[in-house]
Design a protein around this nucleic acid. Sequence first.
DNA 1: AAGTGGTCTAGACCACTAT
DNA 2: TAGTGGTCTAGACCACTTT
Lengths: 254, 254
Amino acid sequence: MSALNRNPDVHKKIDRSAYEPAYAQLAGILREQVASGAYQPGQKLPSEATLCRNYDVSPMTVRRAVNLLIDQGVVRTIQGKGTFVKALNFGSISFNLRHFQDLFKDKKRTKIRFLEARIIRADAQVARKIDIQVGQRVIFMRRLIDSDGEPVIYHQESMLYDPKLPIVEGELELTSLHGLFSGGNESSFKKGKLELKATILDREAAHLLKCAEADPALKLEHIFYDFKDRPVSWGWFIFRSDLQELSTTVGIWG
Amino acid sequence: MSALNRNPDVHKKIDRSAYEPAYAQLAGILREQVASGAYQPGQKLPSEATLCRNYDVSPMTVRRAVNLLIDQGVVRTIQGKGTFVKALNFGSISFNLRHFQDLFKDKKRTKIRFLEARIIRADAQVARKIDIQVGQRVIFMRRLIDSDGEPVIYHQESMLYDPKLPIVEGELELTSLHGLFSGGNESSFKKGKLELKATILDREAAHLLKCAEADPALKLEHIFYDFKDRPVSWGWFIFRSDLQELSTTVGIWG
DNA sequence: AAGTGGTCTAGACCACTAT
DNA sequence: TAGTGGTCTAGACCACTTT
């Protein structure tokens, strides 16, 4: 397996008894051939009809395999021309917040600490962000998220306050945050916009996160919308980038 | 179209004459129904067999539509149970570097300025990162990327130096950067690891990027590997987060 | 046993590209 | 005209869940 196989015509077979479905196996075989250099960037893969014959699968199965490779950024297809190996490029690089979410799934180690929750009057900025009148009441919340007893994320948020829905103090803690992170189905938000920025810890945030003032940190700003497409929550998370790693890979990995 | 349709049984039909394929149309219809609240988070969608009948398409077409919705984070499927509407959660949030890449595609507005390129001896850190001996020669490069004449990204990189491949001065400029960003097939890298961090501009970087010293910025650190899986390049990009926006959306839009 | 999603077949037709 | 990818059919069988 470690030796390079530069002859793509000598191909492995699909194991029909394997648990892994045929399309995934085929995708894996092709990805391996690309990774080994059997097909270089820019080169054309065998036609789908050829792959059907070589691996004894139906066109739909080949199609699914190729689509997988497209999703993985390994190849691209041009109708009427063929399937070509893609070179590495930045467009396909993406970072996701899986680690962020994983943190919250671990309910033993992760605790949400409430710093503040009160109803205040919206200032101009809040009013603009969640599309209400200045002076209208909003719920202002500040939370600290602890992992293993150490503070790792600071969060502050201004939420639309609906007087028709009286709020029990205990409910606040569950609102939004746990629903968003737990991966369960408790969220009442339909969609959101997020923006990632660099920032510098002010004195208060530094103190809360037990960092030095003026340390660099990441700021994840959010606006969430309800099912009527009304913006209902604006706020941001602040966390040290060395604690919440945002790493990813690109290209073809084993 | 603006009125909510809370009865999912009164459904739109697939337009077979449309350019948009049937599976995409079906996915769009279902997504719209979820967005309108006809199916709430946690609720079960009609079975695939039912969808086949309702929309008069084959099982494979329904399957593709459902798979699309899964990719978009709208639903999730549980074998033997059904297809369920997903609630918003952070796990599916991802940021990509499309804007980063777009910048480089625009070759009229974007210029790469070379600050420095010379062959130096690897120090301990570089040696560790690209897996060579301390003291071995590496190509050290510093670049500034201008957009519309204004500096927006600073880049520095240490590359493996292969004495067997003599380097023409002019080639350096094309190396890696243009291949990576242009989206063409010029890259000679097979894969890479990237990490996004917050940082603070030091005096030099601030000066080059025409910012104030100690301004916050994003640092995108990278290691790239060649087709033999050897690490060949280590370095980082530094850019102001307000110039290179890293924004994204989550949930169900339109 | 019945219902659900997951995979797969062996063709078909279409749109696009090259020659 | 021949070859390519893109879509789609009308079933089949399987694994899993619920009743």
